[in-house]
Computed example of a mutant assay.
Amino acid sequence: MGIHVENRGWGYPLVIGSAGLALLFPFIIRESYRLRRYVAFLDPWKEPLDSGFQVIQGLVAFANGGLLGVGIGKGLQKMNYLPAAHTDYIFAAIGEEFGFIGTGLVVILFTMWAWRCFKVYKQAPSPFLRTLLWGLVISVLLPFFINVGGVTKLLPLTGMPLPFMSYGGSSLLMMWIRVGLIVRITKEIVGTPS
Protein backbone atom coordinates (compact mmCIF):
# COMPACT_ATOMS: atom_id res chain seq x y z
CA MET A 1 0.00 0.00 0.00
CA GLY A 2 1.73 3.17 -1.21
CA ILE A 3 1.14 6.84 -0.59
CA HIS A 4 -1.50 8.15 -2.95
CA VAL A 5 -0.78 11.76 -3.98
CA GLU A 6 -2.38 11.81 -7.43
CA ASN A 7 -3.89 15.16 -8.43
CA ARG A 8 -2.60 16.84 -5.30
CA GLY A 9 0.04 19.45 -6.03
CA TRP A 10 1.01 19.70 -2.37
CA GLY A 11 1.43 15.95 -1.78
CA TYR A 12 4.85 15.44 -3.32
CA PRO A 13 6.57 18.37 -1.57
CA LEU A 14 4.97 17.34 1.73
CA VAL A 15 6.25 13.77 1.51
CA ILE A 16 9.68 14.82 0.22
CA GLY A 17 9.99 17.61 2.82
CA SER A 18 9.12 15.28 5.70
CA ALA A 19 11.61 12.69 4.54
CA GLY A 20 14.23 15.41 4.02
CA LEU A 21 13.81 16.72 7.56
CA ALA A 22 14.22 13.22 8.97
CA LEU A 23 17.40 12.72 6.95
CA LEU A 24 18.83 16.16 7.76
CA PHE A 25 18.33 15.97 11.55
CA PRO A 26 21.66 14.17 12.21
CA PHE A 27 23.47 16.85 10.19
CA ILE A 28 21.72 19.61 12.13
CA ILE A 29 22.87 18.37 15.52
CA ARG A 30 26.41 17.49 14.38
CA GLU A 31 27.62 21.12 14.20
CA SER A 32 28.00 22.85 17.55
CA TYR A 33 26.47 26.18 16.51
CA ARG A 34 23.39 24.42 15.14
CA LEU A 35 23.08 22.36 18.29
CA ARG A 36 23.36 25.53 20.41
CA ARG A 37 20.45 27.07 18.50
CA TYR A 38 18.38 23.98 19.12
CA VAL A 39 19.26 23.97 22.83
CA ALA A 40 18.43 27.70 23.03
CA PHE A 41 15.08 26.91 21.46
CA LEU A 42 14.30 24.23 24.06
CA ASP A 43 15.45 26.21 27.10
CA PRO A 44 16.84 29.72 26.48
CA TRP A 45 17.00 30.41 30.23
CA LYS A 46 19.63 27.68 30.68
CA GLU A 47 22.27 30.04 29.24
CA PRO A 48 20.59 33.47 29.33
CA LEU A 49 23.75 35.44 28.56
CA ASP A 50 25.01 33.14 25.82
CA SER A 51 22.96 31.02 23.42
CA GLY A 52 19.61 32.01 24.91
CA PHE A 53 20.25 35.76 24.95
CA GLN A 54 18.69 36.60 21.60
CA VAL A 55 15.60 34.46 22.19
CA ILE A 56 14.99 35.97 25.62
CA GLN A 57 15.46 39.55 24.40
CA GLY A 58 13.01 38.92 21.56
CA LEU A 59 10.40 37.72 24.03
CA VAL A 60 11.11 40.76 26.24
CA ALA A 61 10.51 43.01 23.22
CA PHE A 62 7.08 41.44 22.68
CA ALA A 63 6.29 41.77 26.39
CA ASN A 64 7.31 45.45 26.40
CA GLY A 65 5.06 46.13 23.41
CA GLY A 66 1.91 44.77 24.98
CA LEU A 67 -1.27 45.44 23.03
CA LEU A 68 -0.56 48.85 21.47
CA GLY A 69 3.25 49.09 21.65
CA VAL A 70 5.53 51.75 23.10
CA GLY A 71 5.44 53.97 20.01
CA ILE A 72 7.43 54.46 16.83
CA GLY A 73 11.14 54.83 17.60
CA LYS A 74 10.66 54.37 21.34
CA GLY A 75 11.60 50.70 21.54
CA LEU A 76 14.55 50.03 23.84
CA GLN A 77 15.32 46.44 22.88
CA LYS A 78 16.61 47.41 19.44
CA MET A 79 19.22 49.79 20.90
CA ASN A 80 21.65 47.35 22.52
CA TYR A 81 19.72 44.42 23.89
CA LEU A 82 18.34 42.73 20.80
CA PRO A 83 21.03 41.68 18.33
CA ALA A 84 20.02 41.86 14.67
CA ALA A 85 16.87 43.87 15.40
CA HIS A 86 16.94 45.26 11.86
CA THR A 87 17.34 41.87 10.17
CA ASP A 88 16.30 38.57 11.77
CA TYR A 89 14.46 40.12 14.71
CA ILE A 90 12.57 42.91 12.96
CA PHE A 91 9.31 41.21 13.90
CA ALA A 92 10.22 41.53 17.61
CA ALA A 93 11.10 45.20 17.08
CA ILE A 94 7.71 45.70 15.39
CA GLY A 95 6.10 43.91 18.34
CA GLU A 96 7.74 46.26 20.83
CA GLU A 97 6.98 49.49 19.00
CA PHE A 98 3.55 48.64 17.55
CA GLY A 99 2.42 45.95 19.98
CA PHE A 100 0.17 43.01 19.31
CA ILE A 101 -1.93 45.18 17.00
CA GLY A 102 1.10 45.90 14.78
CA THR A 103 2.31 42.31 14.58
CA GLY A 104 -1.26 41.16 13.99
CA LEU A 105 -1.54 43.64 11.13
CA VAL A 106 1.64 42.23 9.56
CA VAL A 107 0.21 38.70 9.77
CA ILE A 108 -3.14 39.88 8.37
CA LEU A 109 -1.42 41.59 5.41
CA PHE A 110 0.51 38.42 4.56
CA THR A 111 -2.71 36.39 4.93
CA MET A 112 -4.61 38.72 2.60
CA TRP A 113 -1.80 38.51 0.04
CA ALA A 114 -1.75 34.70 0.26
CA TRP A 115 -5.55 34.56 -0.10
CA ARG A 116 -5.41 36.74 -3.21
CA CYS A 117 -2.72 34.50 -4.69
CA PHE A 118 -4.83 31.45 -3.86
CA LYS A 119 -7.80 32.93 -5.73
CA VAL A 120 -5.58 33.48 -8.76
CA TYR A 121 -4.20 29.94 -8.38
CA LYS A 122 -7.74 28.52 -8.57
CA GLN A 123 -8.32 30.38 -11.87
CA ALA A 124 -5.08 29.22 -13.53
CA PRO A 125 -5.89 27.41 -16.78
CA SER A 126 -2.74 25.25 -16.97
CA PRO A 127 -0.92 23.01 -14.50
CA PHE A 128 2.34 24.80 -15.32
CA LEU A 129 1.02 28.21 -14.26
CA ARG A 130 -0.56 26.74 -11.12
CA THR A 131 2.68 25.02 -10.14
CA LEU A 132 4.79 28.09 -10.87
CA LEU A 133 2.47 30.36 -8.91
CA TRP A 134 2.28 27.88 -6.03
CA GLY A 135 6.08 27.61 -5.86
CA LEU A 136 6.60 31.37 -5.91
CA VAL A 137 4.01 32.00 -3.20
CA ILE A 138 5.44 29.25 -0.99
CA SER A 139 8.96 30.68 -1.47
CA VAL A 140 7.67 33.95 0.04
CA LEU A 141 5.45 32.50 2.78
CA LEU A 142 7.88 29.86 4.04
CA PRO A 143 10.53 32.41 5.13
CA PHE A 144 7.73 34.43 6.74
CA PHE A 145 6.57 31.47 8.85
CA ILE A 146 10.14 30.43 9.70
CA ASN A 147 11.08 33.94 10.80
CA VAL A 148 7.92 34.57 12.82
CA GLY A 149 8.12 31.09 14.34
CA GLY A 150 11.75 31.60 15.35
CA VAL A 151 11.20 35.06 16.82
CA THR A 152 8.14 33.96 18.81
CA LYS A 153 9.94 30.79 20.00
CA LEU A 154 7.64 28.42 18.15
CA LEU A 155 10.56 27.16 16.01
CA PRO A 156 14.34 27.08 16.47
CA LEU A 157 16.16 30.17 15.18
CA THR A 158 17.48 29.91 11.64
CA GLY A 159 18.56 33.41 10.71
CA MET A 160 15.86 33.68 8.05
CA PRO A 161 14.93 37.30 7.23
CA LEU A 162 11.33 38.49 7.34
CA PRO A 163 10.22 39.00 3.71
CA PHE A 164 9.95 42.64 2.59
CA MET A 165 10.81 43.99 6.05
CA SER A 166 14.24 42.78 7.12
CA TYR A 167 17.30 44.76 6.12
CA GLY A 168 19.35 43.08 3.43
CA GLY A 169 19.93 43.53 -0.27
CA SER A 170 19.96 40.04 -1.76
CA SER A 171 16.94 38.72 0.15
CA LEU A 172 14.87 41.81 -0.57
CA LEU A 173 15.85 41.77 -4.25
CA MET A 174 14.89 38.10 -4.63
CA MET A 175 11.56 38.65 -2.86
CA TRP A 176 10.66 41.51 -5.21
CA ILE A 177 11.65 39.41 -8.23
CA ARG A 178 9.28 36.70 -6.99
CA VAL A 179 6.50 39.24 -6.53
CA GLY A 180 7.13 40.58 -10.03
CA LEU A 181 6.76 37.09 -11.44
CA ILE A 182 3.57 36.58 -9.42
CA VAL A 183 2.15 39.85 -10.78
CA ARG A 184 3.01 38.78 -14.33
CA ILE A 185 1.37 35.38 -13.83
CA THR A 186 -1.69 37.09 -12.34
CA LYS A 187 -1.91 39.32 -15.39
CA GLU A 188 -1.71 36.23 -17.65
CA ILE A 189 -4.45 34.43 -15.73
CA VAL A 190 -6.87 37.17 -14.75
CA GLY A 191 -6.00 39.76 -17.36
CA THR A 192 -6.22 43.49 -16.95
CA PRO A 193 -9.59 44.99 -16.06
CA SER A 194 -11.08 47.14 -18.82
Rank of each mutant, 00 (worst) to 15 (best):
P163A: 09
K153S: 13
G104K: 10
L154W: 05
P193E: 11
I94C: 08
V55F: 00
P161L: 05
G73D: 10
I185V: 12
L49Q: 11
M174H: 13
P143Y: 05
F41D: 10
T186V: 02
F145M: 15
L42S: 03
R37E: 04
Y121K: 01
I56N: 13
M165C: 08
S170Q: 11
L68R: 11
T87S: 14
Y12G: 09
R184T: 13
A92V: 00
W10R: 12
I138H: 11
L23Q: 09
G58I: 00
Y12D: 06
L154I: 05
K78E: 09
V107H: 11
E97P: 08
G17M: 14
F100W: 13
F41T: 04
M165E: 03
E31A: 11
E188L: 14
V190S: 14
E188N: 11
I177S: 09
E6T: 12
F128T: 13
W10V: 13
P13L: 07
G69H: 01
L21V: 09
A40D: 07
W113P: 10
G9C: 05
K74M: 14
F91G: 01
P26R: 00
A84L: 05
L24Y: 13
Q123E: 12
G191K: 07
L157V: 10
M174Q: 15
E188K: 12
L14A: 15
Q54V: 00
W45F: 15
G66Q: 02
L24V: 05
K187Y: 12
E97I: 01
N64W: 12
L142R: 06
P163E: 06
V106P: 04
K122W: 00
S139Q: 08
L173V: 03
A19C: 15
L155S: 02
I28E: 06
L42Q: 06
G58E: 02
V183I: 13
Y12C: 06
L49K: 07
A22P: 06
R30A: 12
M174Y: 12
K78P: 08
T87V: 01
D50G: 12
P83M: 03
G168T: 01
F110R: 12
G75M: 08
G9S: 10
W176Q: 04
R30M: 08
V179R: 02
D43Q: 11
K119Q: 06
A22I: 14
L142H: 07
A40P: 05
H86A: 09
L133C: 02
S139Y: 04
L157R: 04
L105D: 05
P13W: 04
C117P: 00
Y33P: 06
F98S: 11
P156S: 04
W176R: 03
V107K: 11
Q77N: 09
V55G: 02
F62C: 10
R130H: 00
